[in-house]
Amino acid sequence: MGKVKLLAVAMLCLAVVLSGCGASNTVKGTGIGVGAGGAVGAGIGAIAGNTALGAVIGAAVGGTAGALIGKKMDKQKKEIESQIPEATVESVNDGEALKVTFDSGIFFATNSSTVSDAAKNALSNFAVTLQQNPDTYVKIVGHTDSTGKVDYNQTLSEKRAKSVYDYLLLNSVGTNRLTYEGKGIHQPVADNATPEGRALNRRVEVLILANEKMIQEAQQGTLK
């Protein structure tokens, strides 16, 4: 194996270790960007390809700018966790992005794409955190389990993602920040053969990514 491949493998291992341990986003954002390059991003993207995370892997800024973005994301992660206990919040993309997962069983009735009354409070609080952190893009992705017809589940996942999108719009999150899509049954995170696995697969994931303004400020060293 050549030196270039060895370096890529070493950096890939570092990335996996950082993403799996308790390292802060600041540490993650610094570590992976120093010499890692696109090969590492592509490798991790393949590992994480069954979730919305695959959409952002490989786009890390890295270095000092990545550390500043990571620090900013750490702050928002804590805000979301404190205000929205219904959500699971993970640091992704080497700490430079967040993935917020909502259980579809909490958000929607069976076979429904109407946001439940119980979920509206969580989404309203989520919208507040997005308003307080305006320099980000937000991608909403709906998922289902494998029960039922593939086409039906695809449409249901799209409608559920659109419902979250619409509710955030109603709560003053700008349309220029928001996108949505449905993945249906195609990106499970657990075994559809068990009730527990199917419950985990019925979800809505929201990715929070730095926009151009945040990246530019980070690169200039002015991001606070």
Score class of each variant (00 low, 15 high):
Asp94Gln: 01
Ser163His: 12
Gly41Met: 10
Leu130Tyr: 01
Tyr167Lys: 03
Val115Pro: 02
Gly20Ser: 09
Gln220Gly: 12
Leu156Met: 08
Ala65Lys: 12
Val61Ile: 13
Thr110Gln: 13
Ala36Gly: 14
Thr88Met: 15
Gly2Asp: 13
Glu90Leu: 07
Lys183Thr: 11
Arg203His: 01
Thr136Asp: 09
Ala97Gly: 07
Gly174Ile: 02
Arg177Cys: 07
Ala39Asn: 14
Lys99Ala: 09
Met1Thr: 12
Thr129Gly: 04
Leu130Trp: 02
Gly20Ala: 15
Ser112Gln: 05
Leu14Ile: 13
Thr222Leu: 13
Ala210His: 05
Lys28Leu: 08
Asp191Trp: 07
Ile185His: 02
Ala10Phe: 12
Ala67Pro: 00
Thr222Cys: 04
Ile84Tyr: 08
Pro85Gly: 07
Thr175Pro: 08
Ala193Tyr: 02
Gln220Asn: 14
Glu158Ala: 13
Asn121Arg: 14
Ala67Arg: 02
Leu53Asn: 12
Leu18Ala: 14
Leu7Thr: 10
Lys5Leu: 10
Pro85Met: 06
Gln131Ala: 10
Ser157Met: 11
Gly31Trp: 07
Ala36Glu: 14
Ala60Val: 09
Ala36His: 11
Leu223Asp: 09
Leu123Gln: 00
Thr64Gly: 04
Pro195Ser: 02
Gly37Tyr: 12
Ser113Gln: 06
Gly174Phe: 00
Leu12Gly: 15
Ser116Asn: 05
Asn133His: 12
Gly182Arg: 08
Val92Phe: 11
Gly54Asn: 07
Arg160Tyr: 12
Tyr165Arg: 13
Arg203Leu: 04
Leu14Ala: 15
Gln83Met: 09
Phe102Ser: 03
Ile69Thr: 05
Asp151Gln: 11
Lys77Leu: 12
Val138Glu: 10
Gly182Lys: 02
Ala161Thr: 04
Arg177Thr: 01
Asp74Lys: 06
Gly197Val: 01
Gln216His: 09
Ile44Cys: 03
Thr155Met: 11
Val16Asp: 12
Ser19Tyr: 08
Thr194Gln: 00
Lys3Gly: 08
Gly41Arg: 12
Ser163Cys: 06
